[in-house]
Write a protein that binds this DNA or RNA. Structure first.
Lengths: 212, 212
DNA sequence: TCTCATAATGAGGTATCTCTCATTACCTGA
DNA sequence: TCAGGTAATGAGAGATACCTCATTATGAGA
């Protein structure tokens, strides 16, 4: 019943490799043309597989969409978690997380563009993205750093600003947008413009040092 | 060549009435199921017309989408313009416009829901919605009420917050969301939380008086 | 009553998409 | 070499959508 042994030399099974080809093809196409704008046949063709092969790996299109979106948000969080989790101040985590998330989306435009489409076309992306945000905000509230009462509307607002930041950067705006989005987050959470700026600048210095 | 005379008793031509039936049907269906989620055949059926009749009034689907979205944003702006334009302070206009826009979207959910779909599925809605916003922000900047330098990213951020506010209210959040969105707008534009609150409350009193 | 421009009809051509399934290819251990 | 399980194929059934066009209906003035 269990897989007896891996075949030939492959470090990963053929099944896993084909699956990866499909998700990578889906990512490329969906980042370019959107989720609804990409058909299963196109994904299969991009992966150099026949149409029907797709359905040996995913029950339907929504399943690969979920897989791709989760993989992207996971990769983005992984890329920033070591520094982020080393910060003890909730406000610093918010400032760092926001900037870093936008920076990664801009550095890896395939990821950023997929996210933009997903915000419109795959509602569940919201939870994937806000998970880290909720934790950082809650930490800051606990520490008394934020005066704004935190509810779902605050989270929605922060997410909306994050989204606007990614969109701007993908449209060619400079890295300053990430820093501003981070300060806007802090202002929404109750800090004055000056205070938000101070916290953001201090956080950047600290994060720089943590990175080596 | 010109229309010689209106026929029968109608105050508006039959052509105009049929066109209106189509746009109203489109509004009802698209508010419910989205723009891409509504087919031309469904619109025609909802208007109690045959499939092909649609194309005697609109070149294609995108044309009726533009017409419906423009009609909705125009109606919303008309509904708040008399008070809004009577306010002389740019910051007050921002506070009033934001609250009022959200309030109208909540009071007329067909309009609000159409807007939500349009933000995802009809890019040109952005200009229709931000036109008033740009003017009010520019006025406030000119008057020295805002310290934040205003560029496209600020507008995108304000729009994103407006959108989050409408969405929350349509999901059942109370009227407080409109007030908070207005204050968030002012914070983004550089005001402290306390100052934003003060301006918003004062604006509401003033607007109340202007209304009678 | 008859004429004629305007209005409306709805079947159907073309295109695209999702998902199935009978068939074929591949590959490895015996 | 061969057997058997895994992997892959691609034609096509079934939906659904957009848009066209030859045809039919309507209704007001002559």
């Amino acid at each position: 019943m269990k897989r007896v042994k891996a075949s030939r030399s492959p470090r990963v099974s053929k099944r896993a490799r084909t699956r990866a080809r499909l998700t990578e093809a889906a990512l490329r196409l969906m980042a370019e043309s959107g989720i609804n704008g990409t058909s299963v046949s196109e994904i299969a063709a991009e992966a150099e597989l026949a149409n029907g092969t797709f359905y040996l790996y995913f029950r339907d299109k929504s399943e690969i969409v979920a897989a791709v979106c989760q993989a992207v948000t996971l990769a983005m969080h992984n890329e920033m978690n070591s520094v982020r989790l080393s910060l003890e101040d909730g406000a610093a985590r918010v400032a760092f997380g926001t900037q870093q998330f936008i920076a990664i989306a801009a550095a890896e435009p395939k990821w950023g563009r997929l996210l933009m489409w997903a915000f419109s076309e795959y509602a569940a992306i919201k939870e994937d993205v806000t998970r880290y945000m909720r934790m950082d905000v809650a930490l800051g509230v606990e520490q008394g750093r934020f005066t704004e009462p935190v509810d779902e509307f605050v989270i929605d607002t922060l997410l909306a600003i994050l989204r606007a930041g990614i969109s701007s950067r993908l449209d060619g705006a400079g890295a300053g947008v990430g820093a501003r989005a981070a300060e806007y987050h802090l202002r929404i959470l109750g800090m004055s413009a000056a205070e938000a700026h101070r916290v953001r600048v201090a956080t950047n210095k600290l994060a720089e040092r943590r990175n080596g």
